[in-house]
């Protein structure tokens, strides 16, 4: 855990957003929690970063963050990528909160496209950055229609899409942003996380909040909520599996990233979750290419 990585900025309200904006976002979050999986419209603000860089997640984090919170930010599982570093510094400077890269030390974790490998606890809130919150958007472009489909609980279109995967590829070929049904009612986009992470959303002890800045939607999965990945009886939901363990820490049950080593076809597969990989190596685990 480290204190703010840079000096706190003066001239900004705590956590950048003004209090009126935070109240509006907080009310949307409370309704999102009360209706799990339903996308609550909110008046997303322009943030000092472009759309697509996590403006929704940043606004949710800014609205919930308190002075005693410890913030972790990951991008594709990594704490050290541009997006994660800049968002962590942003809150270090505008809120002065402590930041960390260790999953177990964080009280608020903002994520782009991964769920940490370390199991989350009741004392943590996971904030997802969401590009396109509407799971039906590529099947039905009209907002008026998708809203009706959610109102009626009419998700046949999504099942047809998954069926077409099977007809074309022999299996469900959707590998990320894999649709889930929350608490037996709303079908929800889990954001572009790999489907490998879908089982972690089910019955999770931590509160999960989703923010989409450009699309101006907030939704939530309360703790201990049933999150079921859509599938068919004869084509049950399956997660990706890897034919080799992490080359650095030897973990076999984690999501791996491919790293190209040279221009002669050399490559290695390593944990996408950098904190998990570091913790395992510190504990003495080693993969085949550990230095």
């Amino acid at each position: 855990m480290s204190a703010a990585s840079a000096l706190p900025e003066t001239g900004y309200n705590f956590a950048y957003l003004d209090e009126g904006t935070k109240r509006m976002i907080r009310r949307a979050i409370l309704k999102a929690v009360a209706v799990p999986g339903y996308q609550v419209p909110f008046a997303a603000r322009e943030m000092p970063m472009p759309y697509g860089w996590g403006t929704g997640g940043v606004q949710v984090t800014a609205a919930i963050l308190g002075a005693s919170d410890v913030l972790k930010v990951i991008d594709q599982g990594a704490d050290d990528t541009t997006n994660a570093v800049s968002i962590r510094r942003f809150f270090g400077r505008t809120a002065g909160v402590a930041t960390t890269t260790r999953t177990c030390e964080a009280s608020v974790i903002q994520t782009r496209h991964r769920i940490p490998e370390t199991p989350l606890t009741e004392d943590q809130i996971l904030v997802y950055q969401v590009p396109i919150p509407e799971p039906l958007r590529f099947l039905e472009p009209r907002e008026t229609e998708t809203r009706q489909l959610h109102a009626l609980g009419e998700y046949g279109l999504m099942h047809v899409k998954l069926y077409e995967d099977i007809a074309r590829h022999g299996h469900i070929a959707t590998t990320y942003a894999y649709p889930v049904e929350v608490a037996g009612r709303y079908v929800m986009d889990p954001s572009p996380t790999p489907k490998f992470d879908n089982p972690k959303m089910d019955d999770c002890p931590a509160l999960q909040l989703f923010g989409a800045g450009r699309e101006k939607r907030i939704y939530a999965v309360p703790p201990y909520t049933r999150v079921r990945s859509l599938d068919f009886e004869d084509h049950p939901f399956r997660v990706q599996s890897f034919d080799r363990p992490c080359a650095l820490c030897g973990a076999a049950d984690v999501y791996l990233d491919e790293v190209v080593l040279d221009d002669a076809g050399g490559r290695m597969f390593v944990c996408s979750d950098t904190d998990h990989c570091e913790a395992r190596r510190a504990a003495g685990h080693a993969g085949e290419q550990a230095a």
């Binding site: 109240r23 907080r26 929690v33 609205a63 919930i64």
Partner: peptide, 19 residues
């Protein structure tokens, strides 16, 4: 302290409604 008192009350309400 309008900023931090409001945040603390909101987090209590968030915790209450999510659990």
């Amino acid at each position: 302290d309008p900023v931090h008192d409001a945040q603390a009350v909101f987090r209590a309400a968030l915790d209450a409604l999510s659990r």
